[in-house]
């Protein structure tokens, strides 16, 4: 059956509109770095800046040198906190996920209960964290953020890896057990190597979610411990005063977003699987 050419044409137009709508803001974000203030405010909107590299150079100089914001330090904090969260959650999560998958430890309700903790309103955990962290001296520290980010990433990591281990054929592990290997060895030498791609993808998801987190970053840091999201409100157009480059607003968005976009393009569908807690069929 060959579709009607008019319908086909409409479908392509629809496809184009969909792609345009969902990519334009990101394109606009990158474009904004290359514009000067007059171009940001110009009517009609400027799509082709006059001096893109000069404008970008000024913006970057402003962000890194000529303003009282330690952007390099903050970027590094983001990298450290997100990496550490990914590593911690994987380290604790892999064995738990394996146990849930292979032994049905705690039935289905225990892993599901843990999963629901991922979705709890952050304010319910955030206030107690604030109060306890102030006693422990964990406010404004990288460690404090790692703890906070583990609360919602660990349940996800456990859940996703559990479903992965369940799909993994247990016969090789069983063969090893018959040959006298311990369960720990079966996990370490057989299941783990097979699961490595899934573990890496899950770790990257945890990295992305930590990198992007805003609420705890705003709540629990004040100076040395700040990550990029905590700085974003400083760079709202409404906070950028006369004479400061508006491009800085787009620049800070871009340095937060572009690394994540690249990661997501490599993760592809696994992102959807992660966001849907495994409901998406890959």
């Amino acid at each position: 059956m060959r579709p009607n050419p008019v319908v086909r044409a409409l479908q392509y137009i629809g496809l184009f509109v969909v792609v345009a709508v969902f990519t334009f803001p990101t394109f606009w974000m990158v474009l904004g770095v290359f514009k000067r203030n007059v171009e940001h405010k110009a009517r009609p909107p400027v799509l082709f800046p006059q001096d893109p590299f000069g404008a970008a150079a000024d913006t970057i100089r402003f962000a890194f040198e000529s303003s009282p914001v330690p952007l390099g330090h903050v970027f590094l904090n983001s990298v450290v906190v997100a990496s550490a969260t990914a590593i911690v959650t994987l380290a604790v999560g892999v064995t738990a996920a394996y146990s849930f998958a292979r032994f049905r430890t705690g039935g289905t309700s225990l892993p599901f209960f843990i999963l629901t903790l991922r979705m709890a309103p952050p304010i319910a955990v955030g206030l107690p964290f604030f109060l306890v962290f102030r006693q422990l001296g964990l406010l404004d520290s990288q460690l404090g953020l790692v703890v906070a980010y583990t609360t919602f990433n660990l349940p996800l990591v456990i859940w996703l890896l559990r479903s992965f281990f369940r799909e993994l054929d247990p016969s090789m592990e069983e063969a090893a057990l018959v040959d006298g290997a311990s369960r720990w060895q079966a996990l370490r030498y057989i299941a783990l190597p097979l699961a490595l791609p899934a573990i890496a993808s899950t770790g990257l998801l945890a990295f992305i979610f930590s990198w992007n987190e805003f609420f705890f970053a705003t709540l629990l840091t004040s100076s040395e411990g700040r990550t990029i999201p905590a700085l974003l409100p400083l760079f709202l157009p409404r906070s950028i005063s006369a004479g400061q480059p508006l491009g800085a607003s787009f620049f800070i968005a871009a340095i937060s977003a572009v690394p994540m976009i690249i990661l997501v393009l490599f993760l592809q569908r696994y992102l959807i699987k992660g966001l849907s807690l495994g409901a998406a069929k890959e």
């Binding site: 394109f27 990158v30 474009l31 290359f34 000067r36 203030n37 007059v38 171009e39 110009a42 009609p44 909107p45 400027v46 799509l47 082709f48 800046p49 006059q50 001096d51 893109p52 590299f53 404008a55 000024d58 100089r61 402003f62 000529s66 303003s67 004479g243 400061q244 480059p245």
Partner: peptide
């Protein structure tokens, strides 16, 4: 897309002149 926006020095819709001064306090 990014390159396209970066390499069109004179095109319609671009801004008025006078943006040469550095815009950093």
């Amino acid at each position: 897309l990014v390159a396209a926006c970066g390499t069109s020095p004179t095109s319609p819709g671009s801004s008025p002149a006078g943006s040469e001064a550095p815009q950093i306090p």
